[in-house]
Amino acid sequence: MLNSFPCWNDKPADSACFFMYILALALCMNACSPAKNDPVTFMAIGDVPYHLPEDFERFERLIGALNEEGPDLTLHVGDIKSGSTPCTDEYYEKIKGYFDTFSHPLVYTPGDNEWTDCYREACGGYEPEERLDKLRQLFFSTESSQGKFPIELNRQNSLEGFEKFPENAHWKMAEVTFGTLHLIGSNNNFKLDSGALNDEFYERELANNFWLQRLFEQAEASASKGLVLVLHAALNYNSRDERNGHASFVQLLQEKVMAFGKPVLLLYGDHHRFMVDQPLRDNTGKTLTNFTAVQVFGDWDMHAVRVSISPDYLNLFRVEPFYISGN
């Protein structure tokens, strides 16, 4: 206690004693304040819940564990259902209710199972783009994230010509720019049969590529220390394959990562296996070491990935599995 400091009494303090008191006060305040470089932590999940109804209990256990852990943010990288369960309004509303039980902000980007696969009989025989419209209305109709304490997001639909794409968003946290992009499995809904028009694909491809470029511009303009990209698809990195629905995005991603130079972290789902990789190469075939891709758990493995951000880390991001007891 300061009252026990040796020079502290009812008489005016001499200059030496006053200096010692101020020094002690400063040391106390510094010790009691959080360290400037304490890491900011967020969780990444995806491709859950799949197996119904038993997975609801496991999903609740996952949410409870994350709430107890208390990260600054959770990201859901898409696929809020399996590709063989009904795509009903009631189910989407149930998941929205679950998202709102997170005690911290939750940001979600769509996967393919919740709209492109909904034409299947087991899913209810819906028209996929109608289901996508429903997702946009339910999950992306405000400027805020999900969760009990949402954060404000900058959505792409605020820009002229991109009014259809509220799911693409960006925000900043811990001197890092974050952004969601609507790239999905099922070849990004790029259909290869000769009669396919692919209007939906081409429009969304244009929006995603524009948004990717804008995210790097935002990161540069705000002097961000790094960039986090959030999408669903396990990207096909063969940008020369004309049948690849991810080709133009991957080519642009390579160019932007090379020019940016700072750490870029890509979080995705789709194949349900925790994996950390550095799949991007420069034009000579050399690994782009400032780019790291992390695939989250999913399906039967209902766990999370914990990411910590600190300038003290060699590559800004520290990635580790976060296992949920009982799952």
Rank of each mutant, 00 (worst) to 15 (best):
N113E: 10
E57H: 14
G46H: 05
T88A: 11
V48E: 00
V77A: 00
T85N: 10
I80Q: 02
K94V: 03
I80C: 10
Y50A: 02
E60N: 10
P71Y: 08
T101C: 06
S84D: 10
F56I: 14
D72S: 15
F102K: 02
V107D: 08
Y91A: 07
T41N: 14
E69N: 13
M43D: 09
N67W: 07
T109Y: 10
F56E: 15
N30W: 09
G83P: 02
D112Q: 02
E54A: 15
A31V: 09
V40M: 14
I45F: 03
L66M: 12
F102R: 08
C28F: 11
C87N: 02
L106P: 02
E114F: 05
V77E: 04
G111W: 05
P86W: 08
I45N: 00
I80T: 03
E57L: 06
G46P: 00
Y98Q: 12
E69F: 15
P53V: 09
F59E: 04
T101K: 11
H76M: 12
E54G: 06
D47W: 01
P39F: 12
I80A: 03
E93Q: 15
C87S: 04
T116P: 05
D79C: 06
D79G: 06
E60Y: 07
C87G: 01
D112S: 04
H76C: 13
L27D: 08
L106N: 00
N37A: 15
S84G: 08
I80G: 01
T85G: 00
G64E: 04
M29K: 10
D112V: 02
R61K: 15
E68M: 03
G97R: 12
I63L: 03
I80E: 02
P110Q: 07
G78M: 08
D100L: 03
P39K: 10
T74Y: 00
P34K: 09
T88I: 05
D112P: 04
E57G: 13
L27F: 11
E68C: 07
Y50K: 04
G97H: 14
K96C: 10
V40I: 13
K36S: 13
C28D: 07
Y50D: 04
T41S: 15
L106A: 05
D72K: 14
T101H: 13
L106D: 01
G111C: 10
M29E: 02
T88L: 06
P53E: 11
R58I: 09
I45A: 00
G78P: 08
P71H: 06
Y108C: 03
T116D: 09
I95L: 08
N67A: 06
T74E: 00
A31T: 11
L73F: 10
A35F: 11
